[in-house]
C-alpha cells in the first residue's frame, strides 16, 4: 500500500524516541547506573548490553568505560616495589614490533660495559599499530598497554615520538588500569620469585636466611613513594590533554 514503508520507518524512529525516554525514566536519577561521574561534567559511561533507545555517548563530555584489555600505546613500568625500572633492554619488544617503531639503546656503566638497563627507549606513536606484541612477548612484564588514547598533536616530530621519560609510569598506574591482569601477574611473579628464592636458598643453604627480612623497606615509605609517582603520572597525562585543548 502506498506509504506503508514511510509509516514503518517513522514508527521505528518513534520507537527509538520512546525507548530513550523510557530508559531515562527507569534509570532515574542517573541514566547509566554503575557509571563514574568524574566531576566537571565529565562522565565515564559503562553502557549495559541491554541498553535500548539512544546508544550515543556524548563525547567528550561523556566517555566510554574502556575494558581492561583496551590497548593503545605501550608504557614502561617503573617498579615501585624495587624502585627501579623493570626493563632490562633485552630488545625482544624491538624485535617483535611489526612496524619496527621501538628504538632501544642499552646503557653502559662507567667502564663502558653494557648493563641491563635501557639508556634510551623510544616509541614512535605515529607508527605503532597497537598490536600488543611488545607486551605479549616481554619476558620481564616491563611494558604494558596504556589506555590514554587522546594523543592528538599539531606536529608529529618530536611530540609523538615518546622517549623513556614520557613512556614510564609507576606500577600502581598500571595496576589501576589492568586490575585483573595485574593480580594474576603478581601471583605469577610471586611464585616465580619464590621458586627462584627456593633455588637460591638451597644453594646457599645456611647463609642468607635472615637477610631478606632486613632488606625490605619500611612499608609506609614505599606507599608514599608510590602515591607520589602515581600523582605525577596522572598529572602528566592531564597536562598533555590540556596542552592539546
Amino acid at each position: 500500500m502506498f506509504g506503508t514503508g514511510l509509516l514503518k520507518g517513522l514508527g521505528i524512529t518513534f520507537k527509538h524516541l520512546v525507548d530513550t525516554y523510557k530508559d531515562d525514566i527507569q534509570s532515574t536519577p542517573a541514566r547509566y547506573q554503575g557509571s563514574d561521574d568524574r566531576g566537571k561534567g565529565l562522565k565515564v559511561i559503562d553502557q549495559p548490553v541491554d541498553q535500548e533507545g539512544l546508544l550515543t555517548i556524548q563525547y567528550p563530555e561523556e566517555r566510554r568505560l574502556l575494558p581492561e584489555r583496551f590497548r593503545y600505546i605501550p608504557m614502561l613500568i617503573w617498579d615501585t616495589e624495587t624502585d627501579e625500572e623493570r626493563c632490562t633492554a633485552c630488545g625482544i619488544c624491538a624485535k617483535v614490533c611489526p612496524p619496527q617503531c621501538i628504538w632501544i639503546t642499552r646503557a653502559t656503566d662507567e667502564a663502558g660495559k653494557p648493563v641491563t638497563r635501557p639508556q634510551d627507549f623510544f616509541i614512535d606513536a605515529t607508527i605503532c599499530m597497537s598490536c600488543n606484541y611488545c607486551v605479549e612477548f616481554c619476558p620481564f612484564d616491563a611494558i604494558k598497554m596504556d589506555h590514554d588514547a587522546e594523543l592528538a598533536s599539531f606536529e608529529r616530530f618530536p611530540h609523538l615520538v615518546y622517549d623513556k621519560g614520557e613512556l614510564t609510569v609507576p606500577l600502581d598506574y598500571y595496576a589501576a588500569l589492568w586490575p585483573t591482569q595485574y593480580a594474576e601477574e603478581q601471583e605469577r611473579r610471586a611464585q616465580e620469585a619464590a621458586e627462584a628464592r627456593a633455588k637460591e636458598e638451597a644453594k646457599a643453604a645456611r647463609a642468607a636466611v635472615k637477610k631478606e627480612e632486613e632488606e625490605a623497606p619500611a612499608p609506609e615509605a614505599k606507599l608514599s613513594r608510590a602515591e607520589e609517582l602515581k600523582q605525577k603520572a596522572m598529572e602528566r597525562a592531564r597536562q598533555r590533554r590540556e596542552a592539546q585543548s
Binding site: A89, G91, A94, K95, V96, C97, P98, Q100, I102, W103, I104, T105, R106, P114, D120, F122, D124, F157, V161
Partner: peptide, 15 residues
C-alpha cells in the same frame, strides 16, 4: 628483513 638491526641495542632515532 625485519627485525632491523638499527633498533637495538644501539638506536639512534631518526626518521
Amino acid at each position: 628483513q625485519k627485525p632491523f638491526r638499527s633498533r637495538h641495542p644501539r638506536a639512534d632515532f631518526a626518521r
